[in-house]
């Protein structure tokens, strides 16, 4: 293949990655923004979504599309419930103190990973795509499902944005983000808002995982990469800023697609981790955020 089409392919693959990443990272960003919690177990919520999708695909009879539709609804709900439980049982009792919650979510990461290994096993398993369709371009063919992933992610993000800006729940979340004390004074049940936010953040990761799992197999260690990439996105986009997160997800997703097509992925990861560290040191407000 010539360079032009090759780059086009890399960009299209990158767009799929960016779409999924935007979902995952916006969950992390939301949790950090509203709760000031750095959730190290976020990648495990992603992994749980994927693993749960595999179980659903085994248990739900009929054509793959039915099982997929069920998974898209049920898996995020399961993961969200689990996250809400974790918040109420652990994070709330730590009063969401930043350093303590990081330690606790590391513990959660270990437990969830081990649980997945025990219940699901060490194998990587594929989940059938809801439909098979091939888009034929002049230079190469492309899976129509990937196009669906991009569209679905965009739809969910649009829904998230509408929810945050147009509904009472969104207003309450934003109020809590700006000032916890005042929110309490205005009769907002901060405990519920926090549990709900943590659940929503985890659900976003799970949705992303259900979408990606027909392309990339489910595996109990699959949470590491999305966690790292989400961190990069959230930090570069500016901690807690959703708009910055989306912009950064697009940038990182696309460049990840391009870079891993042309370069060694490990080298790309080394550069990316160093980049995150340096951005945090020299521009803690993110590359797109305004200086506070």
């Amino acid at each position: 293949m010539e360079f032009g089409p090759f780059l086009l392919l890399a960009l299209m693959e990158g767009l799929v990655g960016a779409a999924v990443l935007a979902l995952t990272a916006s969950g992390l960003s939301l949790v950090f923004g509203v709760m000031r919690v750095v959730n190290v177990a976020h990648g495990e919520f992603f992994m749980l979504g994927a693993v749960a999708a595999w179980f659903v695909s085994q248990w739900v009879p009929g054509p793959p599309a039915v099982a997929f539709a069920v998974a898209l609804v049920v898996c995020p709900l399961i993961v969200a419930a689990l996250a809400a439980l974790a918040d109420l049982a652990i994070l709330k009792r730590l009063k969401h103190e930043p350093e303590a919650t990081i330690v606790a979510t590391i513990g959660l990461l270990y437990i969830l990973q081990q649980a997945a290994l025990t219940v699901y096993g060490p194998e990587a398993r594929p989940v059938p795509a809801p439909f098979e369709m091939r888009l034929q371009l002049p230079w190469f063919g492309w899976s129509g499902y990937k196009l669906f992933v991009i569209g679905a992610a965009a739809a969910v993000l649009l829904g998230l944005w509408l929810m945050l800006t147009r509904t009472r729940a969104g207003l309450v979340m934003r109020a809590t983000q700006i000032d916890r004390e005042t929110a309490t004074a205005f009769g907002i049940d901060v405990t519920r808002v926090h549990a709900g936010t943590f659940a929503l953040g985890a659900a976003l990761a799970a949705v992303a995982a259900v979408l990606i799992v027909p392309i990339q197999q489910a595996h109990y260690l699959m949470g590491g990469d999305p966690l790292l990439l989400s961190f990069i996105v959230v930090i570069i986009g500016g901690l807690g800023s959703l708009r910055g997160t989306l912009l950064a997800a697009l940038l990182i997703g696309l460049s990840d697609g391009v870079i891993s097509t042309f370069f060694q992925p490990t080298l790309a990861k080394i550069v990316a981790t160093l980049l995150v560290a340096l951005v945090l040191v020299f521009r803690p407000q993110g590359l797109f955020g305004a200086r506070a």
Binding site: I90, I106, G107, Y110, I111
Partner: peptide, 13 residues
């Protein structure tokens, strides 16, 4: 590994 995780959470809590 779960023991490590549980120890972390238990200690911090």
């Amino acid at each position: 590994q779960a023991v490590v995780g549980a120890a972390l959470i238990g200690l911090i809590l």
